[in-house]
Design a protein around this nucleic acid. Structure first.
Lengths: 272, 272
DNA sequence: CGTCAGGTTGATGCCATTCAACTTAGGTGG
DNA sequence: CCACCTAAGTTGAATGGCATCAACCTGACG
């Protein structure tokens, strides 16, 4: 399997082989693992290595002084936990593992070298940062304007699109290795209300979610329910070329967005 | 008055004179003005110049297909509307003037030159982007966890801190040239409820807001009410050195954060 | 003096919270 | 193999924060 960071940074445009090599090397050094509730870093931490998720799910979260807390983002393989953190004095939020997680740590000097001497990488890192910001804005508008029903639909759409872009979906299904409690923290709902909302989505036949597997029978319908417009993810039309070859079973990602021409086949969480 | 962009980028660390000169030049070229409800750019626009706010207030906002819309950020003098937009294919949100606004437009090639050949500027732009992202995260947590009362308090705290960092406060007062409707859009409340919440804040003597002038009699009290922790703004201890000399009337900014030793003097929106 | 944007107030209803209990599934040890 | 335990998920009933709808007030301005 391709290096998740390279795959991610190449989502928009291919990198020179030389740059790929450099990235490969940069992420080969310090590999670390974390268990489900472990923190990768905490609010107040001073700048250290730049951390890249290689496998597993990670959450960006923040706690208020009185104990309330919220998940601010889900980080998937290829995502950076703290890009360019060294230009700030300290972390203003925390990052925690949701599942078993593998990360690569890139030392500060090495990362600076990437930024200064590899313009294509630097550009790709900027793009990555801008897309993260766009996602954060979309969460803001979700919390501000969308109802619980729309909000949950929207989150599931987003995750499905992002997972598909990194080749982590199987047909209309994907892993969703988080509890309802975490989804509640991310959507700003209480656990109880999230559960009820999820059941509404099930009743409307928009999602199937069981034993950590999410299936979306009709993506277009879910997108409509969520008022989901994938533009903000800036996936580009060349999304995910690297493993296209190994995925001939699947329809081209771009086409599958629009049509549910496979709707006649039953939900098959196990295909591929 | 110093160039707002330079002042902004120097918030954390001074720039070499050479870099200052380059920035001065970059922002001297295309100056444009916009009236209150005009859009500086719209969702779907293709990458163009990078726009820097020189004076006035600007909002980042986004609309859903059915008409609902939300303000995602307030942009103040020195802020960039679309940093590095060229690495994306199109704008995923809109930017509109809230007041009379002056901006400088930096052409794409020029901006790329800044990024590639002026590492200190590039670094400062990264910092600016990371702080913007941090602000967006804080809005997310506000919408997700804070009550209307806390949320409005928090927004006012943030704006006051940011305005003070660019030398746009007068004692305990600052301009707040936006309608309650805009504050409602930014906090995710209805206009009616925002109005009531504002009156609660007035009743608690935490804010005075009249004819577009905001006065915060006791900043610490407001911060407590908002659960406001300014860390996420990454202002640094050297915040705002440029115009310190011209502002001897005012107490040093850093000190004024903590104490309200001037509490005995009446609110004076007109001092300085 | 009419008009209009911005601000204020009251009455009513609903979406989401809160509290509390119950179920289910997986794991562990006797 | 059952007893027990815990995390995760589900359900019911009551409460409340905020939205909604609808007036009304105020000051600026031509």
């Amino acid at each position: 399997m391709a290096n998740p960071l390279i795959r991610k940074l190449e989502q928009f445009s291919q990198l020179p082989v030389e740059d790929q090599r450099v990235l490969e090397q940069a992420t080969a050094g310090h590999i670390r693992r974390f268990g489900p509730r472990e923190d990768l870093m905490s609010e107040g931490d001073e700048p250290g290595e730049v951390t890249v998720v290689l496998s597993g799910w990670v959450s960006r979260y923040k706690q208020l002084e009185d104990g309330r807390s919220a998940i601010l983002a889900f980080l998937l393989p290829g995502d950076l936990c703290n890009p360019n953190i060294s230009v700030l004095r300290e972390m203003d939020h925390s990052v925690g593992a949701l599942t078993l997680v593998t990360v690569a740590e890139i030392s500060q000097p090495l990362f600076e070298d990437l930024m200064l001497n590899h313009p294509r990488i630097s550009q790709a890192l900027w793009r990555e940062a801008l897309v993260s910001a766009a996602i954060q804005r979309e969460w803001t508008i979700s919390l501000s304007q969308r109802t619980a029903y729309e909000r949950l639909s929207h989150l599931l759409c987003e995750l499905f699109f992002r997972l598909r872009a990194i080749g982590a979906t199987r047909g209309r299904s994907c892993d969703l290795p988080v509890t309802q409690a975490k989804l509640a923290e991310a959507t700003g709902l209480t656990l109880v209300h999230l559960n009820r909302t999820l059941q509404e989505l099930r009743a409307a036949n928009l999602v199937l979610l069981k034993s950590r597997i999410l299936t979306i029978p009709n993506l277009e319908a879910l997108m409509t329910a969520a008022l989901f417009n994938p533009n903000y993810l800036h996936l580009g039309c060349a999304a995910n070329p690297p493993d296209r070859t190994a995925a001939q079973l699947r329809a081209p990602d771009d086409l599958r967005v629009a049509g549910d021409y496979r709707a006649s086949s039953p939900p098959d969480p196990t295909d591929l």
